[in-house]
Design a protein around this nucleic acid. Structure first.
Lengths: 141, 141
DNA sequence: GATAGGGCTTCCCATCATGGGAAGGTCAAG
DNA sequence: CTTGACCTTCCCATGATGGGAAGCCCTATC
Protein backbone atom coordinates (compact mmCIF):
# COMPACT_ATOMS: atom_id res chain seq x y z
CA UNK A 1 0.00 0.00 0.00
CA UNK A 2 1.03 3.62 -0.49
CA UNK A 3 1.89 6.04 2.25
CA UNK A 4 -1.58 7.59 2.39
CA UNK A 5 -3.17 4.24 3.00
CA UNK A 6 -0.56 3.33 5.60
CA UNK A 7 -1.24 6.65 7.25
CA UNK A 8 -4.95 5.99 7.49
CA UNK A 9 -4.38 2.45 8.68
CA UNK A 10 -1.93 3.50 11.38
CA UNK A 11 -3.17 6.90 12.43
CA UNK A 12 0.26 8.41 11.73
CA UNK A 13 0.35 11.27 9.25
CA UNK A 14 2.23 10.82 5.99
CA UNK A 15 4.48 13.67 6.98
CA UNK A 16 5.46 11.90 10.15
CA UNK A 17 5.97 8.57 8.46
CA UNK A 18 8.50 10.17 6.13
CA UNK A 19 10.09 11.94 9.05
CA UNK A 20 10.38 8.73 11.05
CA UNK A 21 12.09 7.15 8.09
CA UNK A 22 14.43 10.10 7.75
CA UNK A 23 15.59 10.01 11.35
CA UNK A 24 15.98 6.24 11.24
CA UNK A 25 13.13 5.36 13.57
CA UNK A 26 11.73 3.09 10.89
CA UNK A 27 13.56 1.43 8.04
CA UNK A 28 13.24 2.81 4.52
CA UNK A 29 10.62 0.74 2.75
CA UNK A 30 10.64 -0.63 -0.74
CA UNK A 31 9.66 1.73 -3.52
CA UNK A 32 7.40 1.13 -6.47
CA UNK A 33 8.46 1.89 -10.03
CA UNK A 34 7.20 5.43 -9.67
CA UNK A 35 9.27 5.90 -6.54
CA UNK A 36 6.30 5.70 -4.20
CA UNK A 37 6.97 4.20 -0.77
CA UNK A 38 5.32 0.82 -0.30
CA UNK A 39 4.06 -0.41 3.05
CA UNK A 40 3.11 -3.84 4.33
CA UNK A 41 0.83 -4.78 7.18
CA UNK A 42 3.92 -5.28 9.31
CA UNK A 43 4.97 -1.74 8.61
CA UNK A 44 1.54 -0.57 9.69
CA UNK A 45 1.93 -2.50 12.93
CA UNK A 46 5.19 -0.75 13.60
CA UNK A 47 3.57 2.61 12.92
CA UNK A 48 0.74 1.81 15.30
CA UNK A 49 3.25 0.79 17.92
CA UNK A 50 4.95 4.15 17.52
CA UNK A 51 1.67 6.00 17.67
CA UNK A 52 0.66 4.24 20.86
CA UNK A 53 4.03 4.90 22.46
CA UNK A 54 3.78 8.57 21.54
CA UNK A 55 0.29 8.75 22.98
CA UNK A 56 1.72 7.53 26.27
CA UNK A 57 4.18 10.39 26.15
CA UNK A 58 7.32 8.49 25.21
CA UNK A 59 9.79 10.55 23.22
CA UNK A 60 10.86 9.33 19.81
CA UNK A 61 14.15 8.29 21.33
CA UNK A 62 12.42 6.21 23.99
CA UNK A 63 10.07 4.89 21.37
CA UNK A 64 13.04 3.72 19.37
CA UNK A 65 14.34 1.80 22.37
CA UNK A 66 10.95 0.23 22.95
CA UNK A 67 10.67 -0.64 19.29
CA UNK A 68 14.05 -2.34 19.35
CA UNK A 69 13.07 -4.29 22.46
CA UNK A 70 9.77 -5.26 20.89
CA UNK A 71 11.55 -6.65 17.87
CA UNK A 72 14.17 -8.41 19.97
CA UNK A 73 12.56 -11.70 20.87
CA UNK A 74 15.32 -12.37 23.39
CA UNK A 75 14.76 -9.12 25.29
CA UNK A 76 14.56 -9.02 29.04
CA UNK A 77 11.33 -7.46 30.21
CA UNK A 78 13.38 -5.66 32.85
CA UNK A 79 14.81 -3.47 30.12
CA UNK A 80 11.34 -2.46 29.01
CA UNK A 81 10.22 -1.84 32.54
CA UNK A 82 13.27 0.35 33.07
CA UNK A 83 12.33 2.61 30.16
CA UNK A 84 8.75 2.80 31.37
CA UNK A 85 9.74 3.48 34.96
CA UNK A 86 12.00 6.34 34.02
CA UNK A 87 9.30 7.79 31.84
CA UNK A 88 6.80 7.57 34.68
CA UNK A 89 9.24 9.38 36.94
CA UNK A 90 9.71 12.07 34.32
CA UNK A 91 5.98 12.51 33.90
CA UNK A 92 5.47 12.71 37.63
CA UNK A 93 8.17 15.29 37.96
CA UNK A 94 6.54 17.44 35.30
CA UNK A 95 3.10 16.92 36.81
CA UNK A 96 4.36 18.02 40.20
CA UNK A 97 5.96 21.07 38.65
CA UNK A 98 2.75 22.08 36.94
CA UNK A 99 0.70 21.36 40.04
CA UNK A 100 2.92 23.76 41.90
CA UNK A 101 2.17 26.42 39.31
CA UNK A 102 -1.54 25.71 39.53
CA UNK A 103 -1.51 25.94 43.28
CA UNK A 104 0.20 29.31 43.24
CA UNK A 105 -1.98 30.62 40.45
CA UNK A 106 -5.19 29.49 42.07
CA UNK A 107 -4.23 31.17 45.28
CA UNK A 108 -3.38 34.42 43.52
CA UNK A 109 -6.44 34.19 41.35
CA UNK A 110 -8.61 33.59 44.37
CA UNK A 111 -7.24 36.74 45.96
CA UNK A 112 -7.91 38.79 42.82
CA UNK A 113 -11.22 40.58 42.79
CA UNK A 114 -11.45 40.27 39.03
CA UNK A 115 -13.52 43.38 38.59
CA UNK A 116 -13.00 46.81 37.10
CA UNK A 117 -10.43 47.93 39.63
CA UNK A 118 -6.74 47.85 38.74
CA UNK A 119 -5.46 46.33 41.98
CA UNK A 120 -4.35 42.81 41.32
CA UNK A 121 -2.44 40.40 43.56
CA UNK A 122 -1.45 38.37 40.50
CA UNK A 123 0.48 41.25 39.03
CA UNK A 124 1.82 42.10 42.46
CA UNK A 125 3.26 38.64 42.77
CA UNK A 126 4.85 38.81 39.36
CA UNK A 127 6.25 42.22 40.08
CA UNK A 128 7.59 41.26 43.48
CA UNK A 129 10.02 38.46 42.63
CA UNK A 130 12.44 39.87 45.13
CA UNK A 131 15.59 37.97 44.39
CA UNK A 132 17.10 36.41 41.28
CA UNK A 133 17.70 32.63 41.35
CA UNK A 134 19.94 32.47 44.37
CA UNK A 135 22.03 35.57 44.86
CA UNK A 136 21.02 38.11 47.47
CA UNK A 137 22.90 41.32 48.15
CA UNK A 138 20.56 44.10 47.05
CA UNK A 139 23.39 46.53 46.56
CA UNK A 140 22.45 49.59 44.54
CA UNK A 141 21.80 52.62 46.74
CA UNK B 1 24.59 48.48 33.50
CA UNK B 2 25.60 46.10 30.74
CA UNK B 3 23.66 43.04 29.69
CA UNK B 4 25.73 40.65 31.79
CA UNK B 5 25.01 42.57 34.92
CA UNK B 6 21.32 42.86 34.07
CA UNK B 7 21.31 39.14 33.49
CA UNK B 8 22.74 38.43 36.93
CA UNK B 9 20.41 40.91 38.56
CA UNK B 10 17.32 39.48 36.89
CA UNK B 11 18.11 35.81 36.54
CA UNK B 12 17.44 35.96 32.81
CA UNK B 13 20.29 34.87 30.55
CA UNK B 14 21.89 37.40 28.22
CA UNK B 15 20.82 35.26 25.31
CA UNK B 16 17.23 35.46 26.38
CA UNK B 17 17.33 39.18 27.06
CA UNK B 18 18.48 39.78 23.50
CA UNK B 19 15.84 37.39 22.24
CA UNK B 20 13.08 39.12 24.20
CA UNK B 21 14.19 42.37 22.66
CA UNK B 22 14.23 40.84 19.22
CA UNK B 23 10.67 39.53 19.43
CA UNK B 24 9.42 42.78 20.91
CA UNK B 25 8.66 41.49 24.39
CA UNK B 26 10.86 44.23 25.81
CA UNK B 27 11.78 47.54 24.26
CA UNK B 28 15.22 48.03 22.76
CA UNK B 29 17.33 49.79 25.35
CA UNK B 30 19.77 52.63 24.92
CA UNK B 31 23.24 51.76 23.71
CA UNK B 32 26.58 52.97 24.92
CA UNK B 33 29.21 54.45 22.61
CA UNK B 34 30.61 51.02 21.98
CA UNK B 35 27.16 49.73 21.04
CA UNK B 36 26.64 47.83 24.28
CA UNK B 37 23.07 47.57 25.52
CA UNK B 38 22.46 49.59 28.69
CA UNK B 39 19.98 48.58 31.36
CA UNK B 40 18.36 50.47 34.20
CA UNK B 41 16.88 49.14 37.42
CA UNK B 42 13.46 49.46 35.81
CA UNK B 43 14.58 47.21 32.99
CA UNK B 44 15.74 44.69 35.55
CA UNK B 45 12.32 44.79 37.18
CA UNK B 46 10.70 44.03 33.88
CA UNK B 47 13.07 41.12 33.33
CA UNK B 48 12.30 39.74 36.76
CA UNK B 49 8.60 40.07 36.03
CA UNK B 50 9.10 38.04 32.87
CA UNK B 51 11.16 35.46 34.70
CA UNK B 52 8.51 35.03 37.35
CA UNK B 53 5.74 34.74 34.78
CA UNK B 54 7.75 32.12 32.89
CA UNK B 55 8.33 30.19 36.10
CA UNK B 56 4.56 30.02 36.53
CA UNK B 57 4.32 28.48 33.09
CA UNK B 58 2.98 31.47 31.18
CA UNK B 59 4.01 31.51 27.54
CA UNK B 60 5.90 34.51 26.23
CA UNK B 61 2.72 35.62 24.51
CA UNK B 62 0.77 35.49 27.76
CA UNK B 63 3.67 37.14 29.52
CA UNK B 64 3.46 39.97 27.06
CA UNK B 65 -0.20 40.48 27.87
CA UNK B 66 0.52 40.44 31.59
CA UNK B 67 3.37 42.86 31.12
CA UNK B 68 1.14 45.23 29.21
CA UNK B 69 -1.50 45.02 31.93
CA UNK B 70 1.10 45.56 34.59
CA UNK B 71 2.25 48.73 32.90
CA UNK B 72 -1.28 49.93 32.29
CA UNK B 73 -2.24 51.67 35.49
CA UNK B 74 -5.86 51.84 34.34
CA UNK B 75 -6.13 48.10 33.79
CA UNK B 76 -9.07 46.10 35.06
CA UNK B 77 -7.96 43.26 37.28
CA UNK B 78 -10.57 41.12 35.54
CA UNK B 79 -8.37 41.11 32.45
CA UNK B 80 -5.45 39.77 34.45
CA UNK B 81 -7.59 37.18 36.12
CA UNK B 82 -8.86 36.08 32.74
CA UNK B 83 -5.33 35.37 31.51
CA UNK B 84 -4.51 33.52 34.70
CA UNK B 85 -7.71 31.51 34.66
CA UNK B 86 -7.16 30.32 31.12
CA UNK B 87 -3.62 29.39 31.93
CA UNK B 88 -4.77 27.41 34.94
CA UNK B 89 -7.26 25.57 32.76
CA UNK B 90 -4.56 24.80 30.26
CA UNK B 91 -2.23 23.51 32.95
CA UNK B 92 -4.96 21.36 34.42
CA UNK B 93 -5.76 19.92 31.04
CA UNK B 94 -2.15 18.98 30.50
CA UNK B 95 -1.83 17.61 33.99
CA UNK B 96 -4.87 15.41 33.48
CA UNK B 97 -3.45 14.18 30.20
CA UNK B 98 -0.18 13.21 31.80
CA UNK B 99 -1.91 11.66 34.77
CA UNK B 100 -3.77 9.45 32.35
CA UNK B 101 -0.48 8.34 30.86
CA UNK B 102 0.96 7.67 34.28
CA UNK B 103 -2.06 5.66 35.30
CA UNK B 104 -1.82 3.44 32.25
CA UNK B 105 1.92 3.09 32.52
CA UNK B 106 1.84 2.24 36.18
CA UNK B 107 -0.73 -0.42 35.55
CA UNK B 108 1.28 -1.94 32.74
CA UNK B 109 4.49 -1.62 34.67
CA UNK B 110 2.92 -3.28 37.66
CA UNK B 111 1.92 -6.22 35.49
CA UNK B 112 5.44 -6.55 34.06
CA UNK B 113 7.64 -9.00 35.88
CA UNK B 114 10.72 -6.95 35.04
CA UNK B 115 13.05 -9.91 35.09
CA UNK B 116 15.05 -11.82 32.51
CA UNK B 117 12.07 -13.19 30.66
CA UNK B 118 10.96 -11.56 27.42
CA UNK B 119 7.22 -11.54 28.13
CA UNK B 120 6.14 -7.99 28.73
CA UNK B 121 2.64 -6.53 29.04
CA UNK B 122 4.01 -3.08 28.31
CA UNK B 123 5.15 -4.12 24.86
CA UNK B 124 1.96 -6.07 24.40
CA UNK B 125 -0.07 -2.97 25.05
CA UNK B 126 1.99 -0.94 22.61
CA UNK B 127 1.76 -3.66 20.00
CA UNK B 128 -1.97 -4.14 20.44
CA UNK B 129 -3.31 -0.69 19.62
CA UNK B 130 -6.15 -2.28 17.72
CA UNK B 131 -7.64 0.63 15.85
CA UNK B 132 -6.31 3.86 14.43
CA UNK B 133 -7.85 7.10 15.80
CA UNK B 134 -11.45 6.41 14.89
CA UNK B 135 -11.83 4.23 11.83
CA UNK B 136 -12.65 0.60 12.25
CA UNK B 137 -13.09 -1.89 9.40
CA UNK B 138 -10.22 -4.35 9.85
CA UNK B 139 -10.50 -5.64 6.34
CA UNK B 140 -7.32 -7.34 5.10
CA UNK B 141 -7.01 -10.86 6.45
C1' DG C 1 53.15 49.44 23.79
C1' DA C 2 51.74 44.61 23.36
C1' DT C 3 49.13 40.94 24.79
C1' DA C 4 45.72 38.13 27.29
C1' DG C 5 41.23 37.57 29.00
C1' DG C 6 36.68 38.62 29.44
C1' DG C 7 32.55 40.96 27.91
C1' DC C 8 29.95 42.65 24.22
C1' DT C 9 28.04 42.48 19.27
C1' DT C 10 25.68 39.90 15.37
C1' DC C 11 24.71 35.74 12.90
C1' DC C 12 23.86 30.93 12.24
C1' DC C 13 22.65 26.37 13.93
C1' DA C 14 20.38 22.81 17.02
C1' DT C 15 16.81 21.17 19.84
C1' DC C 16 11.71 18.28 19.60
C1' DA C 17 7.78 16.76 16.98
C1' DT C 18 4.86 18.41 13.95
C1' DG C 19 2.51 20.90 10.17
C1' DG C 20 2.29 23.92 5.90
C1' DG C 21 3.21 24.57 1.41
C1' DA C 22 5.61 24.86 -3.18
C1' DA C 23 7.21 22.61 -7.38
C1' DG C 24 6.95 18.80 -9.96
C1' DG C 25 6.13 13.68 -11.26
C1' DT C 26 2.37 9.90 -11.70
C1' DC C 27 -1.83 7.73 -12.25
C1' DA C 28 -6.77 6.75 -12.94
C1' DA C 29 -11.22 8.31 -14.25
C1' DG C 30 -13.90 11.01 -17.09
C1' DC D 1 -6.50 15.15 -22.89
C1' DT D 2 -7.75 17.24 -18.79
C1' DT D 3 -8.74 17.10 -13.97
C1' DG D 4 -7.90 15.83 -9.49
C1' DA D 5 -5.88 13.08 -6.16
C1' DC D 6 -1.98 11.07 -5.08
C1' DC D 7 3.07 10.86 -4.45
C1' DT D 8 8.02 12.88 -4.34
C1' DT D 9 11.61 16.22 -2.37
C1' DC D 10 12.82 20.54 -0.33
C1' DC D 11 12.31 24.53 2.55
C1' DC D 12 10.13 27.03 6.33
C1' DA D 13 7.69 27.73 10.86
C1' DT D 14 6.53 26.69 15.48
C1' DG D 15 8.43 27.93 21.16
C1' DA D 16 11.97 28.89 24.17
C1' DT D 17 16.38 28.10 24.85
C1' DG D 18 21.36 27.10 24.34
C1' DG D 19 25.89 26.69 21.75
C1' DG D 20 29.29 28.66 19.28
C1' DA D 21 31.97 31.44 15.77
C1' DA D 22 33.90 35.83 14.19
C1' DG D 23 34.97 40.13 15.44
C1' DC D 24 35.02 44.53 18.32
C1' DC D 25 36.03 46.79 22.92
C1' DC D 26 38.05 47.46 27.33
C1' DT D 27 41.15 46.63 31.17
C1' DA D 28 44.94 44.66 33.55
C1' DT D 29 49.31 42.91 33.42
C1' DC D 30 53.98 42.40 31.58
Amino acid sequence: MNIGEASKASGVSSKMIRYYEQIGLIHPTARSDNNYRLYTQDDVHVLRFIRRARSLGFSLEETQKLLALWQDKARESAAVKEVATQHIADLERRIAEMQGMVKTLKHLSHCCSGDGRPDCPILEDLAASAAPPSSATPSNH
